[in-house]
Design a protein around this nucleic acid. Structure first.
Lengths: 195, 195
DNA sequence: CTGGTAAAACAACGCCCTGTCGGTTATCCA
DNA sequence: TGGATAACCGACAGGGCGTTGTTTTACCAG
């Protein structure tokens, strides 16, 4: 039986090698931009054969994308019920949750958001926000399509760049504190801080 | 005389080849991510010898960085007198000016900000904003260092992502209109739009 | 206009990564 | 335990890389 659909798990060996490959990439990306990392380097670091790599990924970038997709999915799960709304009270806990998740996977997130990553990860998240979080606002309010898009880009990018800085500085603030700051910035803007 | 300092202009030939190289890269980047563009491709497109390329740049990324630096400098010039402040009235015209400049060099900017570019360009601009625009605010106000950094990241990233979207959509709005939108978002936040 | 100079073209080099084989060995799991 | 599947191995041609030494071309100062 050919594993009815996809509910059967992957072969243990596959899981293991994929894990090794991914960890090796993250490791390497702490020091090198993705563009300077060869398939060969990854395989040596992961101690697997190069042909094995090609059995799973087409190249470094494909690998990186897959990793990003997984992270996006993980975040997706976190916010599957709760939603961003224009209300501050709902936003803070959701954000806090995401920040905690990011802190737990600090190395991974830092790498993905760093200049050693590529910008497509950010685009992924914008898309995520569009699909999941902000669509209801657009529906409920009478906001034209274009304007909404602008808001989404602005919100997600601003958000992410703060998180990136936070990770680079080794998470000096509590997730909840940061969540509050971000929320304030998002909904009240900069001027709030010059009160 | 070995060209007293650097005030003498570059050799005409040098200028020409550099121009050809740069235009070729921008051309290629409309279709390919920088990581998929080889030095050889660039040279063939620019119709110059490969060794000539290496006489000026170390690789594709070096070339891209140089281009980005130039753009940053150009923007720098635009805002050399005026400054971002927390006042809306001053911000709009400066932003408008920058947007007009971006629209004039649409292809270039779109490529630099797109996912085919690399994120270092964005980091450059954050740095620029830090040095030039926002430092006075930090000085005048009693805002601690860290908080300021967060604000700067947030502001620049949010700003840029909107501009990127605008360019991708082929500049459907007037520069000034967009400048007003951005300013509103920056200083009043999202909630302003759900009034 | 001309002669010295500097840049670009050319050709060739070894080097190393790339993708992709077919065949062998090791591991899984039903 | 045995059939299946994945990982390993070795090897292959191909091609981009970075550099070098030489020749040809273009510049521009005097």
């Amino acid at each position: 039986m050919n594993q009815t659909a996809n509910n059967k798990k992957e072969d243990r060996r596959v899981r293991l090698t994929k894990l090794a490959i991914r960890e090796s990439l993250i490791e390497l990306m702490q020091k090198n931009p993705i563009s300077k990392i060869s398939v060969k380097m990854i395989c040596e670091a992961a101690d697997i054969n190069r042909s094995t790599f090609y059995a799973h990924y087409t190249d470094q970038y494909d690998l990186l994308n897959k990793i990003q997709q997984e992270v996006v999915s993980a975040i997706m799960v976190q916010i599957f019920v709760k939603e961003f709304t224009q209300e501050t009270e709902a936003t803070v806990p959701v954000l806090t949750q995401i920040l905690e998740y990011a802190e737990e996977n600090k190395a991974l997130f830092r790498v993905l958001l760093s200049e050693n990553g590529d910008s497509s990860f950010q685009d992924e998240l914008v898309l995520l926000a569009q699909q999941k979080s902000l669509q209801e606002i657009r529906e409920r309010k009478h906001l034209n399509e274009n304007m909404s898009r602008y808001l989404e880009c602005f919100a997600v990018s601003g958000c992410l760049s703060i998180i990136r800085k936070w990770l680079d500085d080794d998470c000096p603030d509590e997730p909840e504190k940061l969540a509050e700051l971000i929320t304030k910035l998002l909904f009240q803007g900069i001027s709030w801080f010059y009160r």
